[in-house]
Amino acid sequence: MEDEVDRLVAAWRRERPDLDVEPLEVLSRVSRLARHLDRARRTAFAEHGLEPWEFDVLTALRRAGDPYQLSPGQLLTQTLVTSGTMTNRIDRLTTKGLVVRLPDPDDRRGVLVRLTDAGRDKADQALAGLLAHEREILARLAPAQRGELASLLRQLVIPFDRAGG
Rank of each mutant, 00 (worst) to 15 (best):
P105R: 14
P17K: 00
L33S: 10
F55V: 00
V21H: 07
A150Y: 07
M1C: 09
R14W: 13
M86K: 00
R162N: 11
L138K: 10
G129N: 08
L61Y: 02
V111N: 05
R109G: 12
A64V: 00
G110C: 08
S31C: 11
R101G: 07
R42G: 12
A163L: 15
K96R: 14
A142P: 00
G49D: 10
E148P: 01
D18K: 00
T79S: 09
A139D: 04
D3Q: 09
A142D: 02
A126S: 12
A44E: 01
E148N: 08
G84V: 03
G49Y: 13
P23G: 08
R39V: 03
S31H: 07
L27G: 09
T77L: 15
V26T: 08
L76D: 04
E4C: 10
G119L: 02
A128I: 06
G49T: 03
D66H: 14
W12V: 15
E47A: 14
E4I: 12
V99K: 00
G73F: 13
G73I: 05
A126D: 09
G84Y: 07
D121Y: 08
A139K: 05
A11N: 04
D124G: 08
Q74Y: 05
D104L: 14
L61P: 01
A126K: 00
L75P: 00
N88V: 04
L102Q: 12
R41D: 04
T79C: 14
Q78C: 06
L149F: 13
E148D: 14
V157D: 11
E4W: 02
A60K: 01
A123Y: 03
M86N: 06
R108V: 13
P143Y: 14
W53Q: 07
A40W: 01
R62Q: 10
D3K: 10
L115Y: 05
A128H: 03
W12I: 09
G97P: 02
L80G: 03
R29K: 04
R92H: 12
A64L: 11
A150W: 02
R62N: 11
R32K: 10
H48Y: 11
A128V: 10
P105C: 15
A11P: 00
